[in-house]
Design a protein around this nucleic acid. Sequence first.
DNA 1: CGGGACTTTGAGCTTTCTCAACGATGGTGG
DNA 2: CCACCATCGTTGAGAAAGCTCAAAGTCCCG
Lengths: 252, 252
Amino acid sequence: MRDVPYVRRPITTNPPNSPTARQCHDCGARHIGLCDALSDDDIGFLARVAQSVSMPAGKSFIEEGSPSAYFYDINLGDVRVHKSLPDGRRQITGFMGIGHFLGLSVSGTYAFSAEALNDVQLCRFDRSSLLSVFAEFPAIEAKLLEVAVHEMVIAQEQMLLLGRKTALERVASFIDSWTERHAPLSNRPRSYAPVTFLLPMNRTDLADYLGLTPETVSRSFSQLKRDGLINFNNPQEISVLQPHHIAAMTCG
Amino acid sequence: MRDVPYVRRPITTNPPNSPTARQCHDCGARHIGLCDALSDDDIGFLARVAQSVSMPAGKSFIEEGSPSAYFYDINLGDVRVHKSLPDGRRQITGFMGIGHFLGLSVSGTYAFSAEALNDVQLCRFDRSSLLSVFAEFPAIEAKLLEVAVHEMVIAQEQMLLLGRKTALERVASFIDSWTERHAPLSNRPRSYAPVTFLLPMNRTDLADYLGLTPETVSRSFSQLKRDGLINFNNPQEISVLQPHHIAAMTCG
DNA sequence: CGGGACTTTGAGCTTTCTCAACGATGGTGG
DNA sequence: CCACCATCGTTGAGAAAGCTCAAAGTCCCG
């Protein structure tokens, strides 16, 4: 039954001290992204309209063009977001991780699709509940605006990558940003120490994210490997041997 | 003195019934974008912290990396927004017109540059004034979130274009969206009647927007011209002879 | 009428894509 | 437990889309 999402608590409003409300304490996303903007008291109110949902790896839970009934916040796992052309060409617009929100819509239908890259846990809010929460807690809406503005900055960087960078620069940019995700040193200059981590997506996903073909992604990885900048224990596990050098190859 | 922006009212707070407050009535952007979300009463309050600013064609008024001191709303004219790489490669992330807002930032520095494509009139708000307005009028912040979400949809469409469309499809997509801007038929199916309008940007801007070279943009235009889908009276004035056919070439 | 900037067109080149084969990995069933 | 199969990743060779460089054409403006 791996194809059917398992809804842990299919109730619309949870009592204030229910396990759902309390679970935020233990949530991996409690102090990341949207929820980080809320006090323990406020998040209790948010939790009352939240449903906890699990998605197996590969499951699509947002379909481009379908009614935007829900809004999601990722508690665990990784998600790929994409748009497609009628003939099947696909552009992945982002890989989202813990604390990331998904599914805001103005038009009433989703403008993109979203799939679980691995087993994912989500907080789900239905549209109308969310609107009432906004009315009660403007802080949430304010934080959401902040997050949306930050998303926009990232989107503009991706446009620069897609429109103007070479294949090698694109792959280096990707490695650089994932190195930052796994060894975030905030404001300090990036560490020169090697970092190893797992990539939750395959080469085809990567190609569709970087505007390349899987072959070109693979060739770029191979070149970086030849140059001693990275290494692969297996295709998923990358070691960034010279993070500063990779960063220099991103061209900004 | 065309290089120096002319500030019409360099005062920070204007009295409620001042010409500034009343000018919103006559503003071309009064019922577009952000301002459209506000009642006549509310917009009076917004006008009290607004400065009206003019920019001559070509003037850069937002510089990537500089402190994000101001927030702008376009009253008249067209603006190009872009990011650049250190070696000069440029990606234009959007062409903004009347009613468009610009300059929100979370980090405290602008993530992009903005230049006037022609003579532009802007409403300018300083950061701190804007934050106080947000506190007083959550409706503005809510509308801003809505606008930001819509921006994000457009950005994702542009990523799809840059990552996955052919040169001809990119140029057709551009023509299609500008046809829509100039002959917006809302929900009804697009008109089959020809539309003529002026492009405020040159071929190099277009190339930097579409991830191409000026030569390729020109060649694509020439092909569409040969095929009888468009015509140019001069390089700025385009006639879209078969809007529906152009729309079909965008591939979505 | 002339000069500068922009646009168009052409020819050859480069990067990336396409197509194909080979290799590695992981899951499944005998 | 191992062989098999499917999927994914890597590598190579040739093709093609779009880029670079160059020259000619056009338009605007003084």
